[in-house]
Design a protein around this nucleic acid. Structure first.
Lengths: 374, 374
DNA sequence: ATATTTAGTTCGTAAGCTTTACTAACTCGC
DNA sequence: GCGAGTTAGTAAAGCTTACGAACTAAATAT
C-alpha cells in the first residue's frame, strides 16, 4: 500500500500530498532525533491529527518506533517519544570507486558500519566486474541480521537516473544495467549513482555543510559533485563532475591545443602528486608541489564559484596530501581570482568522512529513495 | 478562493495538489496552444472530469477562454477549444539593466509588445532611481487597456527571493524593497529578479533551448544566468552570475594578485570591446580583438561546462559584436579545453530575443509566479 | 437509419487534511 | 491533598480533491 503506484501522467493527487508528508515526518525525525507527535506537528506545520495518523501508519510498516515516555518537568501529559527504527534496518552499500577493490558494508541508518567486506578486483572488467559486485552484495546480504532497507551503490562513470551505467571506462562498462541486475539477483530495492555525486550527498547529509557547495574528490582522477539548494546536480546527460579533464591556465598561450599535460588531473590526482613528490628534492620542493596542485584547483574553480555564487568548497581525498598546504593554496587562489565581496565568505574545508565517504553516500541515496529523506 | 492562503508550514494538503494541477493545465495550454478539455486530459494524465472542473474554474477567473468548436473531419462530437485568455491580460515589464534609461513595456502573454515607454536615467541613483522606476510603472499602468496580470522587473544587482535588492552598486541601492514598493504604489502583484537570471528565463521560455544551459550577457559588464533542469539557479546568496569579475588565464603567472586588467570583463564587455576595436588598425586587428574576447570567455567557461556537464551555451549582447568571430572563438576554445566526448555535443548560439530579452524575462517571471508556467 | 466514435457532464466514492471537541495525565500553588 | 492549568494524543465530522462508471450530445461511417 505504501509503495508508489506508478501514476501515469503529471497530475497530482491527494496521495502525492500524503507521500510528501510521510517523507516530511521521516526527514524531521532523521534530522532532530526522537520527538513526540506534538513536536513533529509543530515543526512540520501539520496538525496533530495528521501527524498521529501518519506516525501510526509508519509504525505499522516498521519504519518508526515508540521509545516510551519522555521524562520532563513540564506540566501536561508526558510525551511519547517516536523515532526512526534506527536499529531495525540495515542498508547494504557498495563503493566501486577504488581501482584495486570493490568495497562493501552494512550500515545502520546513521552511517555506522555494522559489517565490512571487500572484494579484490584484480583487474576485473566488464561482466566479470559486474559479477564481482553482485557477489559482494549477495555475501553482505547473507550476513545481514536485520531486514535490508535497500541497497545503494556508488560507482565511477556516467550513471543515468535508471541506474544504468552508460559508460565507465576503467571498469570496461558501457550501458550496464547495474541497478536492475543487483535488484534482480538480491531481490532488494537498489539505487545506483555516480561516486562523486553520492560522495557530495554524503557530505551534505553527514558533514556540516550548507545547502550549496561543491565537493572535489581527489583520487585516481579528480571529480566533483555539486549540491545546489540541497539537491544533487547531475547535468544534462548525467555526466556532471568532469573537472579533472579540463585544461587549467594559459601557460601554453591561447592557441594551444588540448594537452593532457595541462589538465587539472595532471597536477592534482593522487598518482600525479605522488610522482611529483617522489621526484621532489627537499621539503621546500615538496611544498611547492602541493602548492601548485592547490593553485591549479583554485584557478579551475574560480569561474565555477563565480557563476554559481558558491560559498563553500569541500575537498575529499588522502588527508596527508590535501590538508594544509594544498587546501590553503586553493582557497588563496580562489580569493585572489574572484574578487569576493568582503562579506561574501568563501569557506573551504576538507571532508571529515574519511574512507567511507562513498559508502555513506550510497546510504544517503537509499535514504532518499526509500524514506524521502533528502 | 483561488489565491494561496498562506499556509504556515511545510506540509502538503490536497489543495497544494490542486494548485499543481491548475498550473499544469495552464502550462500545457501555454505550450501547445488551443486544445480541447479531452486533449488536455490526455496530455496531462488527469481525467476528463478533473480537467473539466479545473477549466471551468479558470474560465470563471478570466484566465481561460472558450474559442468555439474545432472544425474537424473526424467522427464524434466536435471539441470545444479552450485557450489562455491571451488577449485579455497584459503584463507590465520593466528592464532596469540599461545604464542610460529604464525601459518599460506592456506585453501580451506571448511576449508581444503592446506599449513601450522609457525613462531616461540621467544618472539617478538611490531613492531617485526607485522613484523613476515606480513612475515608469505607474505611467504604463495608466496606459493599460487590459487588466494587468502582474508586474515583472529585471534589475541589476543581487536580488533575494522577496524581491529586495540587496545590493546594486550602479544604482546606488542597498536593501531596497523594490517589489514591495512597486506592489504598494501600483496595487498590482509584482515580481522582481536579477536581470541576467530573468534573461535566462526568457531565453528558456521564448528561445529554442534545452532544459540545461548557461546564458552569458554581454553589455556594460558580463553576467550569466543559469538554467538547470528547467529551473533558474540563483546561488546560495542570490548572487549567481558573477563571472565578469573572475580572472582569466595565467598570463601573469600563478602568483599574480587580482588584477582588473585580467578579468573577463576587461576583454569581453561592450565598452572594452568598443575601445579595443577603436584602437585597432585594420580588419585583421579587429578580428583579433573579437577572437581574443571569445577565447577568454571560452577559457572561463570551460571549467563551468565541465563541472555542470552543460551541453548548451547562449550568448546575448550586441549582435554585430558577438555573432561570428567572437562566438566561434568561444566554442572553439571550449572544445579545445574540455576534451568533450565526440558524442557529447556542445552547442553555442546567440540569443534571438534581441533588445527585449530582459523585458521578456520579466514577463516570464510573472507567468511563472502567477500562472505556474515554468 | 444505425453503428461507431469522440467530447463532455453527472453522480457517487475514496482518500486526505482540518476543525472541533474530547480524554488522559502531568505540574503548580495554595 | 486538591482544584486549576497545561500538554499529549484521539475521535468524529466535514470539506476538498480526484477518480471511475455511466450517461448525454453530436458528429462520421456504412
Amino acid at each position: 500500500m505504501n509503495v508508489a503506484m506508478q501514476r501515469n501522467g503529471l497530475g497530482a493527487t491527494p496521495g502525492d500530498a500524503k507521500q510528501h508528508n510521510r517523507a516530511l515526518v521521516m526527514r524531521t525525525l532523521y534530522a532532530t532525533g526522537p520527538a513526540s507527535r506534538a513536536d513533529i506537528a509543530r515543526s512540520t506545520g501539520l496538525t496533530k491529527v495528521t501527524v498521529s495518523v501518519l506516525v501510526s501508519e509508519l509504525i505499522g510498516e516498521g519504519l518508526l518506533h515508540e521509545l516510551g515516555q519522555r521524562e520532563s518537568q513540564r506540566p501536561g501529559k508526558p510525551a511519547i517519544l517516536v523515532d526512526l527504527a534506527r536499529d531495525s534496518h540495515a542498508v547494504l552499500c557498495l563503493d566501486l570507486s577504488d581501482h584495486r577493490a570493490f568495497r562493501g558494508a552494512l550500515l545502520d541508518l546513521d552511517g555506522g558500519v555494522l559489517v565490512r567486506r571487500d572484494a579484490e578486483r584484480g583487474g576485473a572488467t566488464g561482466d566479470e566486474a559486474v559479477e564481482l559486485a553482485v557477489g559482494l552484495a549477495l555475501e553482505l546480504q547473507s550476513l545481514a541480521k536485520l531486514p535490508l532497507l535497500g541497497i545503494g551503490v556508488g560507482t565511477p562513470g556516467v550513471v543515468d537516473d535508471h541506474g544504468v551505467v552508460r559508460t565507465a571506462p576503467n571498469l570496461g562498462w558501457a550501458n550496464v544495467p547495474l541497478q536492475q541486475t543487483i535488484a534482480e539477483r538480491t531481490g532488494a530495492p537498489t539505487a545506483v549513482a555516480n561516486d562523486a555525486n553520492v560522495a557530495a550527498l554524503a557530505e551534505f547529509r553527514f558533514g556540516d555543510t550548507s545547502e550549496d557547495f561543491i565537493l572535489i574528490t581527489i583520487g585516481q582522477g579528480v571529480g566533483s559533485g555539486l549540491i545546489l539548494d540541497g539537491h544533487p546536480v547531475t547535468g544534462s546527460s548525467f555526466a556532471s563532475g568532469e573537472i579533472g579533464q579540463v585544461m587549467v591556465g594559459t601557460d601554453l598561450g591561447l592557441d594551444a591545443e588540448y594537452s593532457r599535460e595541462h589538465v587539472l588531473e595532471h597536477w592534482l590526482s593522487v598518482p600525479a602528486i605522488a610522482r611529483a613528490l617522489g621526484e621532489a628534492s627537499g621539503d621546500e620542493d615538496r611544498e611547492r608541489v602541493l602548492r601548485e596542485a592547490g593553485m591549479r584547483l583554485g584557478i579551475a574553480l574560480a569561474p565555477v564559484v563565480g557563476v554559481l555564487n558558491l560559498a563553500e568548497v569541500v575537498l575529499a581525498g588522502p588527508t596527508e596530501l590535501i590538508e594544509g598546504t594544498l587546501a590553503e593554496a586553493t582557497l588563496d587562489m580562489l580569493r585572489r581570482r574572484t574578487m569576493l565581496d568582503s562579506h561574501s565568505v568563501l569557506a573551504l574545508h576538507t571532508s571529515a568522512q574519511g574512507d567511507d565517504l562513498v559508502l555513506r553516500g550510497a546510504l544517503a541515496t537509499v535514504l532518499k529513495q526509500r524514506l524521502g529523506i533528502t
